[in-house]
Design a protein around this nucleic acid. Sequence first.
DNA 1: ACCTTTTAAATGCATGATGATACAATTAAA
DNA 2: TTTAATTGTATCATCATGCATTTAAAAGGT
Lengths: 142, 142
Amino acid sequence: MKNNQEKKYLDNWLSITNIQMGITNELESALQKNHNLSLKEFYVLYFLSKTSDKQLRLQQLQDMVGLSQSAISRLVVRLEAKSCGVLQRQICEDDRRGIYTRLTTLGEEKLQISLNTVHEILQSALSKGNLQEELQSLIQKL
Amino acid sequence: MKNNQEKKYLDNWLSITNIQMGITNELESALQKNHNLSLKEFYVLYFLSKTSDKQLRLQQLQDMVGLSQSAISRLVVRLEAKSCGVLQRQICEDDRRGIYTRLTTLGEEKLQISLNTVHEILQSALSKGNLQEELQSLIQKL
DNA sequence: ACCTTTTAAATGCATGATGATACAATTAAA
DNA sequence: TTTAATTGTATCATCATGCATTTAAAAGGT
């Protein structure tokens, strides 16, 4: 009895993981192909765009995107260098240890276009049935 | 209106991703700490244990675990070398291109012990409310 | 039988992630 | 002030992963 229940937990978990990976891979390759962005790079732009002044310190980004401190540092450096002009790093004047990563106008435009791709994929993946309500109630319980 | 719905998709997606990452990280570090196994390594042992003759070709493992062909090849080689004796690779005699990865008795024991750790974590993460039923209905719809 | 094509796994290489460490700036204490 | 501890980033070494290529075996067409 105990074992059956445990098997169910694990197998449900594996199913969730599969679904997650599937959608993640779709997002990855569509963003890469259409906008030359990785998924995490997209997340960076998205989280920046949601703030009032379009900028965040590295540590805040780190928590939101879910990367290590060193990984987010390098991701932002790479992204600034690569996608010429979608974001700018600049020293935070009131605490000169800090670095602001700021979304440029160009970056906002790029984000808006990329959002279309993301929404398309998520919609077709998540719009079935009454999935939204179920998801939300699920998320609240977790 | 359209934008609101789209935001909901994306934000729900981000919530799911967060939850997934959280549990994944818990599993990773508990397995690493208690059993010196990575999560993917654990999955390999688990999928092997579910087969009737405790062995699988690399390609089958690849699909189950969700790694590329090269990655699963190396993962299995590493795991065989490292966790002395939990699994054995051997040439498949009826098709000498193939490699069987076989779970040893020692490996089954190790898996059983590791399963306790995994179940513990999943239980505390997934056992709340009537989450199981909700999850299953969700999974079926996706 | 012989040659081509396909298939399974291994390998070289580039990339991106992490943890440990280094460095610079800030804060707190003496 | 000077000094010690903390905090925010950057850098380094290491490692796992994916793609492209290679090797070996099997299958198929002539």
